[in-house]
Structure formats: structure tokens, C-alpha cells
Simulated scan of single mutants.
Amino acid sequence: MKTRLATAAGAAVLTAATVLGAPAAGAQTAAYPTTPITGVSYGASYVSGTLTWYNRSVGVDGALRAVGCRRAWVGTYDASGSLLGARSTSTKCDVTYSLDDFPSVPADVPGGAAYVVVCLDDASASPLDCEPFYRP
């Protein structure tokens, strides 16, 4: 009797472990949403690329095209318009500068940033053009 009970209990534990340890059918990791950076320009200078919306930060990839001396600035905001974090490049002159190594911009609140503002600044960090981009 004890042998049958132990065998039945052992089989139930193995079945449960197999079912619980198996990955869900069709389960995949969802990609983070992205938004193209467009329309941020002043004369022949521009900022272009892609924003990647993470849970508590926003990634920036792309380029700063500086004709004369320019800077790129990116700020994250919550839904009420409070600034969560900001990053900028140093001043770049007469060059196309890659933003692919631009550090992620903090947005350390539940759900992350509601929107981002991308600015093209002059050499003194005064905005020449700024555009908002909303989380998809």
C-alpha cells in the first residue's frame, strides 16, 4: 500500500514539475516600443534617429548634424510635465556626430516617461528647435 501511494505521489510531483517548468506555448519577449526622431532642425543642422522607450529610461540612437556649432539635448517628462531627466552632447562643430553611444535618459517613475523633448541647441545650449515625442 505504501509503495503504491509513494509511486502515485512521485508521479504527480514529476507531472507537476514538467507542466510548471515548461514554457508557455507561443510566449515571446515583447520588443520595447520605438519612435522615430524627425523634424528637429535648424537650417542645415538636425537631430534624427530613434527613441526606444524602456520601463524607466529612454534610449537614443541616431545622429546630430552640426553645421556651425550645435548640441543635441533630450529630456524625459512624466504625464504632468515634470522633467524626469536630461542628457546632452557636448558642442559639436561642422560634423555629423553619432548618437548611438548617447547614454539612456533617466525616467525613473513607474511606467517610465510619458513623452520626450528633443532639442537642437546652439553652442551656448540655447534651444534653436525642440520637438515633443509621445510614448506609443
Rank of each mutant, 00 (worst) to 15 (best):
M1D: 13
M1Q: 09
K2Y: 08
T3E: 14
A9V: 13
A11Y: 05
V13A: 15
V13H: 08
T15F: 15
T15V: 13
A17R: 03
A17E: 07
T18F: 15
G21L: 10
A22G: 10
P23R: 06
P23G: 12
A24H: 10
A25R: 14
Q28V: 15
Q28P: 00
T29G: 09
T29E: 11
T29H: 11
T29A: 13
P33V: 09
T34F: 06
T38Q: 13
V40L: 03
A44S: 15
Y46H: 14
S48M: 03
L51V: 05
W53K: 02
N55K: 09
N55M: 07
R56S: 12
R56G: 03
R56A: 12
S57A: 14
S57E: 09
V58L: 10
G59W: 04
V60F: 05
D61E: 10
D61Q: 09
D61W: 05
G62W: 07
G62M: 02
R65K: 15
R65N: 15
R65P: 00
A66D: 04
V67R: 14
G68W: 08
R70E: 01
R71F: 02
A72R: 05
A72M: 06
A72Y: 07
W73N: 06
V74L: 03
T76N: 03
D78M: 02
S80C: 01
S82E: 06
S82W: 09
L83Q: 10
S88E: 13
S88I: 00
T89S: 08
T91W: 03
Y97W: 15
D100H: 07
F102K: 02
F102H: 03
P103Y: 07
S104H: 14
V105F: 02
V105E: 00
P106F: 02
D108K: 14
V109Y: 01
G111Q: 05
A113H: 09
A114F: 07
Y115K: 03
Y115L: 00
V116R: 04
V117F: 00
L120P: 04
D121S: 11
D122N: 15
A123F: 05
A123D: 14
A125W: 08
S126G: 13
P127W: 08
C130P: 01
P132I: 04
Y134T: 12
R135E: 02
P136M: 06
P136C: 08
